[in-house]
Amino acid sequence: MTRTAERPAGRASERALADLREAILSGDLAAGAHLGEVELAERLGLSRTPVREALTRLAAEGLVALEAHRGARVTSFTPEDLHGIFDVRLALEPRATARAAAHATADDLDALQDLADRMLAVGAPGPDQDLDALVGLNRDFHARLLDLARAPALAAALANVVHTPVVTRTFHAYDPASLARSLAHHAEIVAALRAGDGDWAGAVMRCHLGNARAVMVGSR
Rank of each mutant, 00 (worst) to 15 (best):
A157T: 12
A98I: 00
T56G: 15
A104C: 06
F77W: 08
E93M: 05
G62R: 09
L90Q: 10
A65T: 11
A106E: 15
A23H: 01
S76M: 11
D117A: 14
E93S: 08
G123Y: 06
D87W: 08
R21Q: 14
V135A: 09
S47T: 14
E22Q: 11
A23Y: 00
A65R: 12
R150W: 00
D28A: 13
L158F: 09
A54Q: 06
R21Y: 01
Q113C: 00
L137S: 05
S76R: 15
A33E: 15
R95D: 12
A72C: 08
D130L: 08
E39S: 12
L40D: 09
N138C: 08
S47G: 15
L148E: 09
E53H: 03
A116I: 07
V135Y: 01
D107P: 08
A111F: 07
R89Y: 04
A33I: 06
R139N: 09
L63I: 06
H69R: 15
A151Q: 12
P127H: 05
L137V: 13
V161Y: 11
E37H: 09
R57V: 05
A106S: 13
A33D: 15
E93D: 12
V64M: 10
G136K: 06
V74M: 02
D140E: 15
T78G: 06
A59F: 01
E37G: 13
N138L: 03
P50M: 01
A96H: 06
I24Q: 07
I85W: 03
L148I: 06
E67S: 08
L131G: 03
L90P: 00
E67V: 13
L25W: 04
L148A: 05
R150C: 08
F77K: 08
R99K: 15
D147N: 07
A151R: 09
L63Y: 02
G136R: 13
A104S: 10
D128F: 12
L109F: 03
D114G: 14
A98N: 01
G84D: 09
G136C: 03
R95F: 12
P50Y: 03
A153D: 15
L35D: 13
G136Q: 11
R118K: 04
L146M: 12
H142I: 04
N138K: 01
D132Q: 07
D117K: 13
E53L: 10
A72W: 02
D147H: 14
P79H: 00
P94D: 06
A33F: 02
L145M: 06
A100I: 00
A41R: 03
V122D: 00
T78Q: 05
R21I: 03
A116Y: 01
M119Q: 14
T56Q: 15
P50Q: 07
H103Y: 08
A153Q: 14
L90N: 10
H34K: 10
L148T: 06
F86A: 09
E22T: 10
E39W: 02
D110N: 04
H69V: 11
L158M: 15
P79R: 02
R89Q: 11
I85V: 14
N160S: 04
A68L: 14
A23V: 01
R95Q: 14
A60G: 06
A155N: 13
D110M: 00
L63C: 09
I85E: 10
R48N: 07
